[in-house]
């Protein structure tokens, strides 16, 4: 069985984004970019399934700028076998991404498609579910545990009240939550090996997908700033204030 893992190049988790003064977006010039953390978890899960002998081959795909090759190389260094970049400088919305991934899946024929639950730039949390809808496949979103059982996969999901387990027929779509695993480091020897793994480059036109955006961003602004309040000297003063608020 093959696994397909889409990965996105996004602003690094540790960088605080700055909104551009003209309200056109977030300033990404000279900002450190990395693989979306949830996608890293997705790659790790695929690699673990491969190490367990349940997956034979891992294909990673990214839709984004030429620099996204670095992100794909990072996935290859973690253990993916081959990579595909659908190169575009445009910002592609989740719906168009899902359509392209559907086309890619038609070529790769994966048994599992594992995606991050959301990208930490647009925070949409849509692509996996949309892909499942477009392909009419079952979906196990926000996964904290994935167990392959023959032609089915059992997925434990993080839901608001706790955990929920569902059983899906394969092929299936899985989106990862934080606790699914802890991604490994790209080790120095694996970075060297990754250089020799295949990385193919295509364009959205190769898949005939309309990438015109459906949403127009009118403005991007800073969130309202919360002002710091007062510091109290001791517990007694804190209690007095709580009482004044009617809390205690």
């Amino acid at each position: 069985m093959k696994a397909l893992v889409p990965v996105k190049r996004v602003i690094d988790y540790n960088v605080k984004p700055r909104v551009k003064a003209d309200g056109s977006g977030v300033d990404l010039a000279n900002v450190k970019m990395s693989m979306n953390p949830f996608d890293e978890i997705a790659v790790e899960e695929a690699v673990r399934l491969k190490e367990a002998g349940q997956i034979d081959e891992i294909v990673v795909v990214s839709i984004g700028p030429a620099k996204a090759q670095e992100t794909l190389r990072a996935a290859l260094a973690m253990g993916a076998d081959s990579a595909l970049l659908i190169e575009t400088e445009e910002a592609i919305e989740p719906l168009a991404v899902a359509k392209m991934l559907k086309a890619v899946s038609g070529e790769v024929e994966p048994g599992l498609i594992i995606l991050g639950k959301q990208a930490i730039d647009d925070d949409s949390n849509q692509t996996g579910q949309m892909l499942a809808g477009l392909m009419n496949l079952p979906q196990g979103t926000f996964a904290s545990k994935v167990e392959l059982e023959g032609d089915h996969v059992r997925v434990t999901r993080e839901v608001d009240g706790g955990l929920e387990t569902v059983r899906l027929s394969t092929p299936a779509i899985i989106t990862t939550d934080l606790r699914l695993n802890e991604p490994r480091y790209a080790s120095l020897p694996n970075i060297m090996k990754a250089k020799k793994k295949p990385l193919e480059i295509k364009t959205p036109a190769d898949y005939g997908v309309d990438i015109a955006p459906r949403l127009k961003t009118l403005n991007v602004s800073e969130p309202p700033v919360r002002q710091a309040g007062v510091k109290v000297a001791d517990v007694d003063e804190l209690i007095a204030r709580l009482k004044a608020m009617g809390v205690a």
Partner: peptide, 14 residues
């Protein structure tokens, strides 16, 4: 070079 930059990034995260 790309590879060395990757080494640095991997090392930084470790």
């Amino acid at each position: 070079p790309d590879e060395i930059r990757d080494f640095c990034e991997a090392t930084r995260s470790i």
